[in-house]
Design a protein around this nucleic acid. Structure first.
Lengths: 235, 235
DNA sequence: CACCTAAACTTGTCTAGACAGGTAAAATAT
DNA sequence: ATATTTTACCTGTCTAGACAAGTTTAGGTG
């Protein structure tokens, strides 16, 4: 249904091939010229696709040599990735909904500045806990404006990406975003959710995601237990 | 001396104009077409320049509207920026060299895997402390391979960007890199350097930067006191 | 005046090449 | 056989357009 741009289609194909191990670590992707021929598109379009993969850290390019497939990062690549589900192998990641989506007024104290439009629409509130190997890792609180999301509060989110549901059922795609990071000692409630010992620090993130809908943003607050896993990013 | 690509030259010009306030927050940059005419280059080249600025969070693009200048982030944009000096207004940032560049063997325990070439070359070690408004904020340890860096240990780094010296005197440019982030409680020595109270957490980063020199990497370990400032990034 | 439509302008995507510069393998000379 | 040069191939940069799609503005219509 969605007409996807050629470059995004290609990057999706290559991403899947890399993650499935079809291209081994350290091996070369087909050359840009070859990819042109295979997919019937021109080089700038191919380059645009490869650029996405470079940003995600899946490949490294070397002039005169080619595009080298990288060892997939063991850590959680949340910095650049749109969703957390795509960041780590989905198989190890389990999602638990602590608070089902429910309508709420916007909080009085909100770390982001909120456009008038979104404030008036009301807010869908959602709490999740992500576990890797049965150990709590992320705890995130999400606020989305209640604009054009029919039946959203009835949907099931267990083990499914929030972003995938937004894309498939409502046509909302994440385009990018900004985030702020801090290290802090979590309060007792967050500490308990993450099953951490007192005095242990977490990575605290505030994110504002932009979407293909003009003026529609998703706001997330994330607590991350970085004792065993680090967060990785490429730039 | 250095033939710079057109797109990088343009992004540099625009970056300077934005940071100097020549384009006010919220205002529009000249259209891509206008930038073509002004600088005598074509649109793909202009777009490549603008893309850099989008990645840095300096502008936001809106189809049908234009490139909007963003409010400069108050926090430290270290995630995407190559150097920390460029991330915050240089005026407020002060650099103190805690350990002048000196030759050393590579550490036994090194958080990164080290190419053979770089290990054999020996290592230049360098410790810095960054202060904002006279308050310690970053403490970073840097390891660079001692390959083609004549007189490097004699240079002065006070209030000067390490990356600028590498670029101007040795032709080394930062192309990108990867990083890992954690939250942790610093050891007593780091805590003292950053003048922090016991039990307070820091943002801990390990970065591996890639350069225009094939196989030449810069390794940094950074401790960041996030009590007053957050680290911000755009993706 | 209020409303709607069309035009002008903007960025997004894409084509079809060109040349420069780096890498590695094949061909040649020693 | 070894060392050097050439060649083929790859990515980096750039040109000069085209059409699509979103936004704003200027006219025109009622």
């Amino acid at each position: 249904m969605n007409e996807m741009p050629h470059y995004r289609r290609l990057s999706g194909i290559l991403r899947k091939q890399i993650q499935s191990g079809y291209y081994a670590e350290g091996s070369l992707l087909p050359s840009e010229h070859a990819l042109c021929a295979i997919h019937g598109i021109t080089r700038p379009t191919v380059r645009q696709a490869l650029e996405e993969l470079v940003r995600e850290g899946l490949i490294v390019k070397r002039q005169g040599k080619g595009s080298i497939v990288r060892k997939p990062l063991r850590n959680i690549g949340i910095l650049a990735a749109a969703g957390t589900t795509s960041a780590i192998g989905q198989s190890f990641l389990k999602t638990v909904i602590l608070q089902k989506p429910q309508l709420r007024p916007w909080p009085e104290e909100f770390p982001f500045e909120l456009p008038e439009m979104e404030r008036e629409a009301g807010c869908v509130y959602l709490e999740r806990l992500r576990l890797v190997d049965e150990v709590p890792l992320f705890y995130d609180i999400n606020h989305l404006p209640h604009l054009g999301l029919p039946r959203f509060t009835q949907r099931t989110f267990e083990n499914r990406s929030l972003f995938e549901i937004l894309r498939r059922h409502y046509g909302i795609e994440i385009r990018g975003g900004e985030q702020k990071l801090r290290a802090l000692i979590p309060g007792p409630s967050v500490r308990e959710v993450l099953q951490m010992k007192p005095g242990q620090p977490v990575l605290y993130m505030e994110r504002k995601l932009t979407t293909n809908r003009e003026g529609y943003h998703i706001y997330s607050t994330i607590w991350f237990n970085s004792e065993k896993h680090a967060i990785s990013g490429v730039f």
